[in-house]
């Protein structure tokens, strides 16, 4: 069972928080901008310093090297970055080309997209490709920072379906940062909110999707 458990996690001088996400469960996270949603995800990916403990599968973060941890606890940043010229160069390190092609067609990309130049991509295209790039690492848990903020309605639906399908198939605990209450209802079974530096669970809707 791959549960993500957070024990007295404190980051950037905030009071410690405790919560957990069961395997295959998705929680939504909301809160005003600047409330520290992205900082929380960065701490969970061990990209910023933190105090406390984070467990995946009962194993503590420091039992893994940092790169290993980040491959398992995949963080999708709100804005994707591409450091090489062509899209395909960013995928060279992953071996699951069959799965990647499946995801590409699910998000309406031709496999030829791998030869495209990054600077010709639109923001939305970059975002959808960044999601596939993240999944290509086969993460065991997902931390999604507003994954659909730059997408139109049709693509939002497709991305939601793809991510939910991946989450269920791989029993991946997921944190989904969203500003859209409708979306929160669609994708998550439990809803958290950051308020005054504290993470509060809202309501108790247990009818998991």
């Amino acid at each position: 069972m791959s549960q993500l458990r957070i024990e007295s996690l404190s980051y950037m001088g905030r009071p410690p928080v405790d919560f957990f996400i069961n395997d295959g469960e998705c929680i939504s996270l909301s809160g005003p901008s600047g409330s520290g949603k992205s900082l929380l995800l960065r701490a969970l990916a061990d990209l910023d310093e933190y105090q406390g403990r984070i467990y995946l599968d009962q194993k503590e973060c420091h039992e893994f090297s940092a790169p290993q941890w980040r491959k398992q606890v995949g963080l999708l940043m709100a804005e994707s970055c591409w450091w090489f010229d062509s899209v395909g160069d960013h995928f060279e390190f992953s071996e699951n080309s069959k799965a990647i092609n499946g995801w590409l067609s699910q998000l309406d990309f031709n496999p030829d997209v791998m030869n495209w130049q990054v600077n010709r991509l639109s923001t939305g295209e970059k975002q959808r490709l960044a999601i596939i790039r993240l999944l290509a690492n086969r993460p065991k848990a997902l931390l999604l920072d507003e994954p659909t903020a730059s997408l139109d309605k049709r693509n939002i639906e497709k991305v939601e379906d793809l991510l939910t399908e991946y989450r269920k198939k791989n029993s991946a605990p997921t944190i989904w940062v969203s500003h859209d209450p409708e979306q929160e209802k669609r994708i998550a079974s439990r809803h958290y909110r950051i308020k005054d530096d504290l993470i509060i669970e809202e309501g108790h809707d247990r009818s998991s999707r």
Partner: peptide, 22 residues
């Protein structure tokens, strides 16, 4: 200047040598 790029590479599981190699 390229903090975001380096951190993106780290997030995808590259180590500190790979992430700043270029």
């Amino acid at each position: 200047q390229q903090k975001a790029f380096i951190e993106q590479r780290l997030l995808l599981g590259q180590d500190r040598v790979q992430a700043i190699s270029d």
